[in-house]
Amino acid sequence: MESLRMITSTVTPLDRKNVDTDQIISKEFLKRIERTGFGRYLFHHWRFDAAGAVKESFVLNDPRFAGSEILLADENFGCGSSREHAPWAILDYGFRVILAPSYADIFYNNCFKNGILPIRLPQNVIDRLLADGQKTPLSLTVDLEQQTILRKDSGETIPFGIDPYSKEMLLNGWDEISLTFQYEDQIAAYENRKAN
């Protein structure tokens, strides 16, 4: 997993609540057995019509947000299916940070395992960013170490919370399985206790 410390980027505002993982990555792309290459299928049915033509009105097709690494979303983002193909597609497309008022639990966990930072912000902050960011593209600097987001246009600093474990994993890009192996004795002891 790639570590994440600081990201400066324009923000792609996706003004929709309850975006489910079926929309993030549609089932027709789940048959692949690889982990990479899902970015081109991200939000497929919102980006393209049935004939494969680009839907101009969808925000990911707006050239002002090309190359953006921060996705701004609304409440309960990533609900529904547990498919990790959703964060794989988000990452492969180029996003490293997501901002939203709330996330579905499995999706939230899946992000951390892939080096994506999902930040929870109060609804009123998200509403403001969505309103402003749709008018004029916003540039933000997300600093994980300091747990702050700096707004370039106004100079405003927005703090955010994160649990210390997930923060450390992301900052270091650690592989969680190797970390767990350090507890092998405890796992074996637990198994022994259980067997007796």
């Binding site: 990790e84 964060p87 499995i106 966990n109 395992k113 399985i177 767990t180 796992i187």
Partner: peptide, 23 residues
């Protein structure tokens, strides 16, 4: 009983455990 992502599937396969915040 709860659903997990594929990274966690790999974690359970290799360690039979998962790191979980108490819900």
């Amino acid at each position: 009983a709860f659903g997990i992502g594929t990274s966690e599937v790999e974690h359970v396969l290799s360690t039979q455990t998962l790191w979980q915040h108490r819900p």
